[in-house]
Design a protein around this nucleic acid. Structure first.
Lengths: 216, 216
DNA sequence: AGAAAATGTGAGGACAAACTCACATACGGC
DNA sequence: GCCGTATGTGAGTTTGTCCTCACATTTTCT
């Protein structure tokens, strides 16, 4: 299935797939590149981030970046995949505990878990909010998957919920989380903690009203 | 104060100011250009919108666009100024009524007023969320002004609120409104109305808890 | 040591988007 | 009708960004 290698075979990323590094140095480079990409995406957004700046921030030449990631979209795609896995793990863990929690604890768990996730994965919001090009579709995918995960958590907490109901509530919860994420960027308000307290309260009241009221 | 005009004076937009049309035809053209710009900004976001596409949508040549708007940022700036005025009017009207309203009515008024505003001003969200370049600063300005207007409404409704408190609550309310705005784009969920109901409920519960409890 | 494979490099090609300009047309006042 | 001003036009310039490529360097294996 593989053509004979040309006399001087040159390893290169294929057009539609990121090349996986073979040696240790390569792995470190890829990690550095992904970190740099996440940082720049977070600072400027997907569109305004440039491949040259990402390479520079990682201390690599532009050619090295393209050695592993054949194009900008696949670089973003790799990050998105990583983020997706990490997010799934975090939310699956929440789901386990959700059944035994009160609504207050659920609100607190969702919010603090979310903020912690964003701390560890800076580029996430930028990649989820891409508005143009093929990336818009991928971003919509991620959002839809997130909705489903949250709906799952809600149903773990309140099994009597219908699919429809869980989906609607999940979307509302998601918008609140997105609001909390926006606070991280919109100026370093000295009041950020105060506003976060407000959002937490809002979530608590809402979840209590929509999921709670049950005894036990 | 004005230099003598060159033999063949050519009217042209200055580098840092939009040119105001003199004739009727010019006014219509400018209106068409702004409408087109708002539509394209709304569809693709500020960065991905191109001047050529905006001109084409307005049925004008690219040169005509630059006749009135010397650069992309000033085109966006003109829209932002229009939107700012309109928003101020809307919110000032709300502020008048807020004193006599219940928290439920206030939540409903804010939400429906906001959605109505977005309907009439499609490009608004795109211009408020600009992340890169000089536009990021302008966008932050608009957001800050919005916070203050909403804080004013809250204080009109609940005069006992401190400046700090009103500001925090206003920010939280604003994030909820932004969530409602995001729903307008993120796919045409058949459940959009259901989710809107959820957001409305969330706002009501929250405002009731933070502003209400008072008799009268 | 020597060869082969993996990784590293940065000038330059290709292309898209912002913006310019020399000239054409429409409109209003005389 | 005639002139001056406002408006209209689109090919071409400039600029910035994605991406390529021919070649250099490092690492692994024998």
């Amino acid at each position: 299935m593989r053509r004979k290698a040309a006399p001087k075979a040159v390893p290169r990323a294929t057009q539609d797939e990121a090349r996986t590094p073979q040696r240790e140095r390569g792995k470190q480079r890829v990690a550095a590149l992904l970190d740099a990409a996440a940082a720049i995406f977070a600072e400027k957004g997907y569109e305004a981030a440039t491949m040259a700046e990402i390479a520079a921030r990682a201390g690599a030449a532009i050619g090295s970046l393209y050695q592993f990631f054949p194009n900008k979209e696949l670089l973003a795609g790799t990050l998105r995949a990583q983020y997706g896995d990490a997010l799934y793990d975090d939310l699956a863990a929440l789901r386990e505990k959700a059944g035994a929690w009160t609504e207050e604890q659920l609100a607190e768990g969702l919010l603090s878990g979310w903020l912690d996730f964003l701390e560890r994965h800076p580029g996430f919001m930028a990649l989820v909010e891409a508005q143009a090009g093929l990336d818009a579709a991928r971003a919509a995918d991620v959002r839809a998957r997130m909705r489903q995960l949250i709906a799952g958590i809600l149903q773990a907490h309140a099994p009597h919920l219908s699919q429809q109901g869980a989906a609607s509530i999940a979307t509302a919860v998601l918008q609140t989380l997105k609001g909390a994420a926006a606070l991280r960027i919109e100026a370093e308000l000295p009041e950020r903690t105060a506003v976060l307290d407000q959002l937490r309260l809002m979530l608590q009241l809402y979840l209590k009203s929509q999921l709670g009221g049950k005894s036990r």
